[in-house]
Nucleic acid binder design. Structure first.
Length: 111
DNA sequence: AAGGTGACCGGCC
DNA sequence: TGGCCGGCCACCT
């Protein structure tokens, strides 16, 4: 099949679901894993739609600075932070502590 | 069909 | 890391 039946979003979800417990990654990293490092914005966009899905731990996805840029899109204002701390990820304000340490590079899903 | 938007990234100061 | 600017690509109206 030439066309990927799965939309761009599905690809992002696939990677997001692969994020291990207590780990975080950046939109750009996911985009790169998809082969579209230039379309990091699309990843964020996909995450927006991921709200309808529960299999997508969007709270584990932050921007490359480790800032919870998308926390505003979650319910409440500190839900995203709560979830991260719940997994052992320390978050101060809107930024993850030791982001590099918790950073996890997404692998290219086997197609 | 065209334009605007967006949970970004990288480069420069 | 902070701020600003341009690029990038899919989705929405």
């Amino acid at each position: 099949m030439k066309d990927r039946e799965l939309n761009f979003f599905e690809r992002v979800y696939a990677v997001a679901r692969q994020i291990p417990f207590g780990r975080v990654t950046s939109y750009g990293a996911i985009a790169k894993a998809l082969g579209a490092s230039r379309s990091a914005r699309m990843v964020g966009w996909a995450m927006n739609a991921s709200h309808n899905l529960e299999d997508v731990p969007a709270h584990r996805v932050v921007n490359r600075k480790g800032l919870l840029t998308g926390k505003h899109h979650f319910e409440g204002t500190n839900l995203m932070q709560q979830l991260l701390e719940s997994e052992g990820v320390k978050v101060v304000g809107n930024q993850i502590v030791d982001f590099e340490k918790h950073f996890w590079e997404p692998e290219v899903s086997a197609e």
